[in-house]
Nucleic acid binder design. Structure first.
Ligand SMILES: [Mn+2]
Ligand SMILES: [Mn+2]
Ligand SMILES: [Mn+2]
Ligand SMILES: [Mn+2]
Lengths: 218, 218
DNA sequence: ATAAAAAGTTAGGTATATCTAACTTGTAAA
DNA sequence: TTTACAAGTTAGATATACCTAACTTTTTAT
């Protein structure tokens, strides 16, 4: 049985190595900073995870998930996204409130609970942020989504997800009346700093490149 | 913020001092044995809980919950019973499976989650074992229930709850096709060891006094 | 090729929650 | 009222998860 903390390290590694960059390996400092701990703390945990054969790692080298490590991580991600869906669909939690609570719920240990919850929700394929939910076999659909900052001027796209799950970001998104499936038209892009002029619900606004980098669209 | 473990000690104290015996105080060994830890471990935790003013306690003396300690404990009990109700009503968990999972879910920290869950369930008053669920104000209905072993011969009663939540006990109960609201007729009682002859769903069976002591009826 | 910077590890320390073994206190029986 | 046993505490370990400060290795730039 893995501890709460071990689970969070595995999920963080999945996020860094596959979900975000498709680069398949992570560094100690990168992992530590993602988890909000010091590199020394991460090093200790890496030794433990290696001992348990959940990661592939050599001293001073890069880190990647082993087969069983990836399986565990995907299972935790599955629980996280199922709980987010539950909170949003059944308990009327808003889009920006589900993540924090799901961070706790994802660690509840009960295979039966996961299966029953999945069924209760009608075997959903996407969570409230538009991210794919791994199925019971641990299969995670690859997503070929682009960010808003990659969209050509003059084009209209549709928001499907966000990359950043911080409360500050999600509040900003809500404020702009932006949500899953909202249509966004790109009017122009400022070459100096990449800020973009866009139209949302007939309102023309300007957003920073940093913001546009974190909005995923189709 | 209380740790998972501190919460379990408070809930245990509520159970020992109020729920079961109405005696309002507990001993160190009694508490330790209830929680499955050694008395030395409990002593350490008692010092910490006293420091936080959650219990009233002097070295070598009896233990009782303070006002704020009782409040916390009732809130955890409320969460435990709401989750048990959710698992049984919405996810089709059977009667004897809900307790273990609720032991984990009761520690999720989110006031909003508790409120929304309560509403989603229709503000239930009783959990799947027939125990009263404290309301949002922390009010816990006193229950004046008797045990099956106190029922007079020739009388028919109705099961409303169980006292013992162990898997072994609950499995036995299920095996006998006994559940909330099942009618039980008491035929006779063996003076030697208190075992009772009873009728459940037209089947006449004999159960031990230990068993009858753990079936609550009206 | 070397030096500086970045990345990563080790040593030693804290806090929580647990244990065993030895000790102290309270109570009930002789 | 003394004594024995039950009840409870303390001391000293262990394991997890975190920290800071100092050290080592790898990478990058001159
Ligand atoms: Mn999330
Ligand atoms: Mn988590
Ligand atoms: Mn229960
Ligand atoms: Mn618990």
């Amino acid at each position: 049985m893995l501890s709460f903390t071990e689970e969070n390290y595995l999920k963080a590694l999945l996020h860094i190595t596959i979900e975000v960059e498709h680069k398949n390996e992570a560094g100690t400092n990168e992992l530590a900073s993602y988890l909000g701990v010091k590199p020394a703390t991460a090093t200790d945990m890496l030794k433990k995870l290696k001992e348990k054969k959940l990661i592939v790692y050599e001293k001073y080298g890069k880190i990647s998930l082993s087969g069983s490590g990836r399986e565990k991580a995907v299972e935790i991600l599955r629980k996280h996204r199922l709980w987010e869906t539950f909170l949003h669909e059944k308990l009327d939690f808003s889009w920006d409130e589900v993540h924090e609570v799901a961070e706790q719920l994802e660690h509840i240990q009960s295979q039966k609970l996961v299966d029953k919850l999945d069924k209760f929700l009608g075997f959903p394929e996407y969570d409230p942020h538009g991210d794919a939910i791994p199925n019971a076999k641990g299969e995670l659909k690859p997503s070929f989504r682009k960010t808003l900052s990659e969209v050509k001027e003059g084009t209209t796209c549709r928001m499907v997800a966000v990359k950043d799950n911080t409360v500050a970001f999600l509040k900003y998104v809500s404020q702009l009346e932006l949500g899953i499936n909202t249509h966004i038209k790109v009017i122009g892009r400022q070459p100096y700093d990449g800020s973009m002029e866009i139209v949302i619900n007939s309102n023309t606004i300007v957003v920073s490149q940093k913001f546009a980098d974190n909005i995923l669209i189709i």
